[in-house]
Write a protein that binds this DNA or RNA. Structure first.
Lengths: 195, 195
DNA sequence: GTCTATAGGCTGATAGAC
DNA sequence: GTCTATCAGCCTATAGAC
């Protein structure tokens, strides 16, 4: 087949990515072998090395693709909004992403704190992008209520951390409450509790 | 040597645990080999298998030990306190643990979301213990301000998540602000921002 | 572009001396 | 209890046919 071969509607590259992401979510990247990926993708191992120069490079490319899509989603969620409304939209976008791509969420959480891998830079850049989006909105929200932040970077990390664990707990419980409602409820509850 | 042999003040078992934890923090458990652990601990590989039946069992024992110590610390931090004061004490205890044992923090974060390992139950039990400590205090705090929680489990997960990412960001920036001050500041800032 | 076959290195685990 | 020596299996990566 010519470049961009298709298998059941997917290019070979896409099939490889899908298999690699699913397996990495199940057992972690290190424990995922090239044989596993080839088998799940329905291609031969040789095709993996035709499309990617190594296992590390495969996962670096996969993470870069997924992270750039995620960044775009967060950016568009915040578009046209500011302050508290923007924060709520960002949190809701995080929840939506976790719900729609739980495999990606799991891989990111387990890889985002590692610093010895070849894709550290890819992940670090994305992490900072997420946090800075939250930080801008947090500073706006604080200014809006006349309460300037002393430690904006740490506060926005806190908001991001809430969003992550709230998402995990929510998914664990079957994601019953609708996203918008959940964000509204929990934001109010957290403010009351932290006072 | 008789049972409980010592190497530089540590029993062999302790030396093995210390080496295993440090290596797992650097590269993850899967990527840490028994040869690495033996070399860093200054013992022969045979001694690893004399003290533990397998690599999985070694890490299960390590995590169980560390998690039970962590649980005890959180429980004693909350002792005699309720509501907001208890929440602040819990968050501060989390920050202290992350500061004093960054290796453990990193390993826990990366392993806590995996569900295919032999130590899942060990980690899951600890996770639920942490969250329920937060949940009790959150419900008290909410009741104290006449704002009953609609989703206590999710809200307490949110508080725990804040504590985790706040701790990471704080450590990343050199842990300059003293813990107590940081918790007080950030709790107020978060409440203002989330409104 | 995709396949099969195979090389070469590393890893978990065991056996047996001391 | 701790050591050294060694094995059997698995994993990344390459070579070459089609």
């Amino acid at each position: 087949m010519s470049n961009g071969a298709r298998r059941g509607g997917k290019t070979t590259r896409e099939a490889i990515f899908a298999a690699a992401l699913a397996l990495a979510a199940e057992r972690g990247i290190t424990a995922t072998t090239m044989d596993d990926i080839a088998a799940r993708a329905g291609v031969a191992k040789g095709s993996l090395y035709y499309n990617f120069s190594s296992k590390d490079q495969l996962f670096d490319a996969l993470l870069e693709l997924e992270l750039s899509e995620l960044s775009a989603r967060l950016a568009s969620a915040r578009e046209g909004l500011r302050g508290r409304a923007a924060i709520r939209a960002l949190v809701e976008a995080v929840l939506q992403a976790m719900q729609e791509e739980p495999d990606l969420a799991r891989v990111l959480v387990t890889e985002i704190f590692r610093d010895d891998r070849s894709w550290v830079r890819t992940v670090a850049v994305a992490r900072e992008g997420f946090l800075s989006a939250f930080q801008v909105s947090c500073e706006e929200a604080a200014a809006d209520v006349g309460h300037p932040l002393r430690n904006a970077a740490i506060v926005s990390a806190g908001v991001f951390g809430s969003a992550l664990l709230i998402g995990l707990e929510w998914l664990l419980r079957g994601a019953q409450t609708p996203r918008g409602e959940l964000v509204e409820q929990v934001a109010g509850d957290l403010a009351a509790v932290l006072g």
